[in-house]
Structures are given as structure tokens and as C-alpha cells.
Design a protein around this nucleic acid. Structure first.
Length: 112
DNA sequence: CGGTTGACCACGT
DNA sequence: AACGTGGCCAACC
């Protein structure tokens, strides 16, 4: 039987979560890239919105998503920014105390 | 219903 | 290299 098509925003959310879940340890990706891989090019901003709503106990590697400029803004999200920097360093990614990632290009996830 | 905000991005000046 | 702008679209007021 025909089931109503999933709500667009819900399928977007699920697609985003699926992509983020696949980011390998020690690699990084950007909001825009997540949107693209999820099949919704140009919706980087909504990716940020989805991630901002993650439950605190999630097992999703949200810390592997950074902005295209290669830094982690602390303004307005100081707690999670510090946590993100700590997790990245734990995966041997160099991040300075201002949140700038060294050599983003070499850490970027390049799915085949 | 319109305006504002936001874990963004590319492009122009 | 620092801003400004337009685009994106869900949530909130």
C-alpha cells in the first residue's frame, strides 16, 4: 500500500544523520559537504540546524563536521566548541586554541 | 503572516 | 584580509 511520502524536512534530517555517521575517525568534513552528500546541495545552514538539535548522549561523530573556513567558532556555543576541539585533538587533528584547524585539506574526508 | 535568527557558504569589493 | 550581500530554509516571536 502506498505510504505518504516522508516529510521533506524529516528525510533531510535522516539523510544528514546518515552521512555524519559515516565520517571515518580522524577525518573531517564541512557543513556544505554533508548537505551535498545527503542529496541536498546548498543547504549547509540547515545541516547546522540539525546538528544543533542533537541529544547530548548521541553517538554521532558530530565533532568531525566543521565549517568551510576551517575553524570552530566559539561565539554563541562555547561549551560545545571546546568539547569539539578536545575530541578532534583526541583524533590527532591539530587545532589551535582559537579553534583554527591546521591543514584542513589533508584531513578532509574524500568519499569515493 | 512577516521579520529575525542561525553549529553555513560563495562571491564581490 | 576584513567586511557586506544574497542565498538557503526551519524555528521562533
Amino acid at each position: 500500500m502506498t505510504r505518504p511520502a516522508p516529510e521533506p524536512d524529516q528525510s533531510f534530517r535522516e539523510a544528514v544523520l546518515a552521512v555524519v555517521a559515516d565520517i571515518p575517525k580522524g577525518r573531517l568534513t564541512t557543513y556544505g559537504q554533508v548537505a551535498l552528500l545527503a542529496g541536498f546541495p546548498g543547504r549547509a545552514r540547515q545541516v547546522g540546524w540539525v546538528l544543533s538539535g542533537l541529544p547530548s548522549g548521541t553517538r554521532l561523530p558530530w565533532h568531525r563536521v566543521v565549517n568551510a573556513a576551517g575553524y570552530i567558532p566559539s561565539k554563541g556555543r562555547e561549551i560545545s566548541a571546546v568539547e569539539q576541539i578536545r575530541r578532534l585533538r583526541k583524533e590527532r587533528i591539530e587545532v589551535d586554541d582559537r579553534g583554527t584547524i591546521r591543514d584542513l585539506g589533508s584531513h578532509l574526508w574524500r568519499p569515493e
